[in-house]
Design a protein around this nucleic acid. Structure first.
Lengths: 140, 140
DNA sequence: CAAGATTGTTGTCGTCAACAACTATGTACT
DNA sequence: AGTACATAGTTGTTGACGACAACAATCTTG
């Protein structure tokens, strides 16, 4: 089967790798049902408590409008909460609940296993190289 | 802003790179409005005329059900056509129309420019290395 | 011929990016 | 003070996509 130039196109290779990684990620998260975007949001809130939604959006490259929905879910699951900011009444300060903190610790363990599986396919040097190359492709 | 482990997670880095590449791809395709999946389908049909839909699905990792819709579009735009197979009356043999061939030639030029922009960020050796590393992550 | 597999199709569900529009609030300027 | 503009969050829409289930028509195999 002749795929022509496809296998040497970076976009094509990245898309296929991304799908494979996503599937392994979801398997790793198992019954938690946490998706990549949710995990990244929990992480950044945990490390920067009190963040505004717009700051999370910027930081992770997630649309403000999209973030609203994900935060609704996280709040409904009792993992994060929005607190009205006293200094700027337009904005919400974001925090994890104790349960959010506990779950995130568990997620970190699962993500570490997931990452270890990927590193096993690349080797440590390969992994570092891959991260470096990918960073050059991003918008910055 | 502390992103914790996110910047060193391969899935996270790949996702962000993929978004950046996708946007450049779409800009490159301009008024043709051809998306990556459509381009890959046109390519594989052009190189393997008479292919069945299931073969295209397998080859590109696109769901059979998804391919039906994309092919409907490509047929509606007069770029590809389904011909009833005489040997297996369940299946369709796929071909590009002359206009599909013509457009694909144009698309190939645009994709080459797109790819050149990416290579400029990586260098030729970096590009080869990246393709090699990515291939190790795929399901095979 | 009967049982099972394959092909294309339809439909549903959930995730996601991109945009537009809107309210409430804050900021800057005159 | 008042006007204009910017920002934060929200709602809603659109379109692309992956995953899955079900189905009819058709092949294949025993």
């Amino acid at each position: 089967m002749d795929r022509g130039p496809l296998p040497t196109l970076l976009g094509y290779a990245i898309r296929r790798s991304q799908i494979a990684i996503f599937q392994d990620f979801m398997r790793s998260m198992g019954e938690t049902g946490i998706r990549p975007a949710q995990y990244s949001i929990l992480t950044v809130i945990a490390r920067n408590p009190g963040l505004k939604q717009a700051e999370v959006s910027d930081s992770l490259g997630i649309e403000r409008a999209r973030l609203v929905l994900v935060l609704n879910e996280l709040e409904a699951r009792g993992l994060a909460r929005r607190v009205l900011s006293t200094t700027d009444r337009r904005s919400h300060a974001l925090f994890l609940t104790p349960e959010g903190e506990r779950l995130l610790a568990e997620l970190d363990r699962r993500v570490a296993e997931h990452e270890a599986r990927l590193i096993a396919k690349l080797g440590q040097p390969g992994r570092r190289q891959l991260l470096d190359l990918l960073s050059r492709l991003q918008d910055d």
